[in-house]
Amino acid sequence: MIDREEAWASLMRSALAGDQAAYESLLRELAPALRASVRRRLAGMGQSVDACEDIVQETLLAIHLKRHTWRTSDPFGPWLFTVARNKLIDHVRKRGRRIEIPIEDFADILPAAEERPGTDAADVERHLAELPTKQRAVLRAVAVEGASVAEAARKHGMTPGAVRVALHRGFASLASRLRAQD
């Protein structure tokens, strides 16, 4: 498990140094690990696991938007588990339950990753529909259609810089809408 955290840390270091491919493979490795742990925790609390994929997506968004709070010299595991725990607690608390989850629980179950690719989630999609038009168009083009920033810029008649800004603002406002939802 320490090996895996060290591998994640090394991917994140490359990512923070500007290696986009390393970043994408990190997120792809984290997703199934998060999915397994969230499902276990939800089941353990007697909650429906339907919300699992929503929580995974919200956690990935948080990891993305707060990645600059991880210092490359710090261990990656505690940072990751704390972000994941926070998002899970938020999600369950919004549904009216007060919970305490020791951080060790995350560390323990992370090795038991199981892959369920392509599972659908509802929350991000729902809030995406309410974003400003430009942000929504750019986000869809880049994420769903797999366009590059340059392609999205051509398609929507924007400069690449404006596409980058819209993409980032889109993710940031998605995250704050997800947090504010009841």
Binding site: Q57, G118, D120, L128, V142, A143, V144, R164
Partner: peptide, 21 residues
């Protein structure tokens, strides 16, 4: 949105905030 798509979008977003320090 599928998680795979979300990840593709996140990886394309290279904007990073300043560290808390």
């Amino acid at each position: 949105m599928r998680t795979d798509d979300l990840i593709r979008g996140l990886a394309a977003d290279t904007t990073r905030e300043a560290s808390p320090g």
